[in-house]
Design a protein around this nucleic acid. Structure first.
Length: 586
RNA sequence: GGGGUCGUAGUUAAGCCUGGUUAUAACGCCGGCCUGUCACGCCGGAGGCCGCGAGUUCAAUUCUCGUCGACCCCGCCA
């Protein structure tokens, strides 16, 4: 049906008569001559219908319209001098059509493929048309390349590829599960995996040493620009490793994917930062490193202050944190806006200071002593024109809000160079987090994460225990995370105890894992990368939907198929499931 | 669960703040002309429940409320 791809016709083909097949992209009918850009996955090539070559073909070509599928036979020729199109790879040649056949017609399109991007709902409803658009096609071709790079790298590094069950067991902790009723076991449900976490650990117990899987995962939580209910992870687990081994392997993988996707070089090792430093300096566990704008702790300067807000913060052992914005001119209105924004973010307030004529100007400057002002000048290295933003309050909360405010300032004043890729490892996460809701400690990562010291024998403040867990961050977005796992039953049981998971519950939910740990489980650990997110970032796209062929809307709907939808009473009966909402009407 | 933005020919947008005659443009579509275009060009034409429902008003695309849908954010979520 064809001798080669449209986009691959070259000067080498001049003089040959070849057959091509594809879609009619654009046609330019000059009456006497008709030009058509014929498109397939590889690109486009210009074909010419001329009455001098074939009167019949030229006449019939009047009927072909946008996106008709045609197969043509014609002679490749060099374009007449002066009519070459250097904007396309095949622009020096064209085909004179001797005969063609319409393989399929196409109704008028719901949107044009070569113009402004249509509304996203429309794109998703007709995703198969949207995919014909150049930029969309490109994203999916690159996605395919990224699969290959990933598989090649991991296979070359001694990893074995496995598939793990999609119909599996609901696990507590973590995200809400999607559940699937079991017809053979009425009243019982499978859960779709949030990740293959336990299976990959069991593969290590099974002795496979290095596992990977490019795997679909499911989480029934609310969607965001970078979150879909089903998404793809590159899931990895390794035996006889510690943190540095997993990180080194990961850097190799990320480097090869990054380089194949972007064509640029990635220098490794990637910078590492402790969770504590990230929170203190950037107010985030996924700092955007494309711009500096570090937070500086001013608490010490105001130990003896007379200014009420700061005084109260010091007394309550809170923190006074600041950001210094250099080289930007802010109006009073800009500053007021910043205050409003900070309040929307949950700040009690935001204090701003401007340094002009070697003096600080601020609504609160009259409450500050000369010593305090001088100390600020020195600690922040202030120069005229600098703007200082200050927040005060409980340390963790203030860090987080200031961190979000930092991102706002970075965005508003264009501090982050758009073309940068800044990778960062966050390490030494706290193992536990106290949940006010549940009145107990929760595993920050998951309950199989090992600590940097034995949980079994630990005494003291549990919140100070650090986990052997790590996240990979790119431009302020988490693109992967993992940990070294607990591999001994006694440690695992101690961990469950810490999390207030009762022995009965533990054995009900994870009995198989606990048993496995008793049967010669090797030390092991791993990581999982958000494949869609990584691609989204590397392609500089705004939404994860742009790298997923058939994504869901924010309400979890597929606009093309209409899923989710109601099922028949018969289906529900077979499943012994009763819907609470009315199945017949709205 | 909460906050916000958007919804006007097939498509992308303008009009709406400040209500009033025939709702505007470009692309697409239909008809005609055109032998070197490549976002071809020129002439002509058709195409609108101004998302849906209610309210205010003499009068609503325009103002108000509700609702549906899409998107962004918080909560939630590795």
């Amino acid at each position: 049906m064809r001798d080669k791809y449209c986009g691959l016709v070259t000067k080498e083909d001049i003089g040959k008569t070849i057959t091509l097949s594809g879609w009619v992209f654009r046609r330019r009918d000059h009456g006497g001559l008709i030009f058509v850009d014929l498109r397939d996955v590889s690109g486009i090539v210009q074909i010419v219908f001329s009455p001098e070559i074939s009167k019949e073909a030229h006449e019939q070509a009047g009927d072909i319209k946008q996106e008709y599928v045609i197969t043509i036979t014609g002679k490749v020729d060099r374009r007449p001098q002066g009519t070459e199109n250097l904007n396309i790879p095949t622009g020096e040649v064209e085909l004179y059509v001797t005969s063609f056949e319409v393989l399929n017609t196409c109704k008028p399109l719901p949107f044009q493929l070569d113009e402004e991007e249509p509304n996203e709902s429309l794109r998703l409803r007709y995703r198969y048309l949207d995919m014909r658009r150049e930029e969309v096609k490109k994203a999916f071709l690159i996605r395919s390349l990224a699969y290959k790079t990933t598989r090649d790298y991991l296979a070359d590094s001694g990893f074995y590829e496995f598939e793990t069950p999609m119909l599996t067991k609901s696990t507590p902790e973590g995200a809400r599960d999607f559940v699937v009723p079991s017809r053979l076991n009425p009243g019982n449900f499978y859960a779709l995996p949030q990740s293959p976490q336990l299976f990959k650990q069991l593969l290590m117990v099974g002795g496979f040493d290095r596992y990977f899987q490019i795997v679909r995962c499911f989480r029934d939580e609310d969607l965001r620009a970078d979150r879909q209910p089903e998404f793809t992870q590159v899931d990895i687990e390794m035996s006889f490793v510690d943190v540095d081994d997993v990180i080194a392997m990961s850097e190799g993988l990320i480097k090869s994917v990054y380089e194949s996707v972007t064509g640029a070089t990635l220098d490794t090792p990637i910078l590492r930062m402790s969770y504590d430093d990230a929170m203190e300096l950037y107010g985030s566990d996924k700092p955007d490193m494309r711009f500096e704008l570090l937070m500086t702790d001013l608490t010490d300067i105001f130990r003896e202050t007379g200014f009420g807000v700061f005084k109260k913060t010091v007394e309550e052992k809170g923190a006074i944190k600041s950001l210094v914005l250099k080289g930007k001119t802010l109006s009073r209105k800009d500053l007021d806006t910043a205050v409003d924004i900070s309040k929307e973010m949950g700040a009690g307030g935001l204090i701003w200071m401007r340094r002009d004529n070697e003096a600080l100007q601020s609504p609160i400057v009259k409450y500050l002593s000369d010593t305090e002002k001088a100390a600020m000048d020195e600690k922040l290295g202030l120069a005229d024109g600098d703007v200082v933003f200050i927040m005060a309050g409980p340390r963790n909360k203030t860090n987080e809000i200031m961190g979000r405010f930092r991102l706002y300032v970075g965005e508003k004043y264009g501090l982050a160079a758009k073309d940068l890729f800044k990778f960062l490892w966050i390490v030494d996460f706290p193992l536990l987090e106290y949940s006010e809701d549940e009145k107990r400690y929760m595993a920050r990562h998951h309950p199989f994460t090992s600590a940097k010291e034995s949980v079994r024998t630990f005494e003291g403040d549990y919140e100070t225990i650090k986990a052997k867990a790590y996240d990979l961050v790119l431009n302020g977005v988490e693109i992967g995370g993992g940990s070294i796992r607990i591999y001994r039953t006694d440690e695992q049981m101690a961990m469950f105890k810490l999390l207030n998971i009762k022995e009965a519950e533990a054995s009900d939910k994870f009995g198989f894992l606990l048993e496995a740990l008793e049967m010669g489980a090797p030390p092991h650990g791993g990581i999982a990368f958000g494949f869609d997110r990584l691609l989204m970032m590397l392609l500089r796209l705004e939404s994860i939907r742009d790298v997923i062929p058939f994504p869901k809307t924010q309400k979890g709907a597929c606009l093309m198929t209409g899923a989710p939808s109601r099922v028949s009473a018969k289906q529900l009966n077979e499943l012994k499931v009763k819907a609470i909402v009315d199945q017949t009407g709205g």
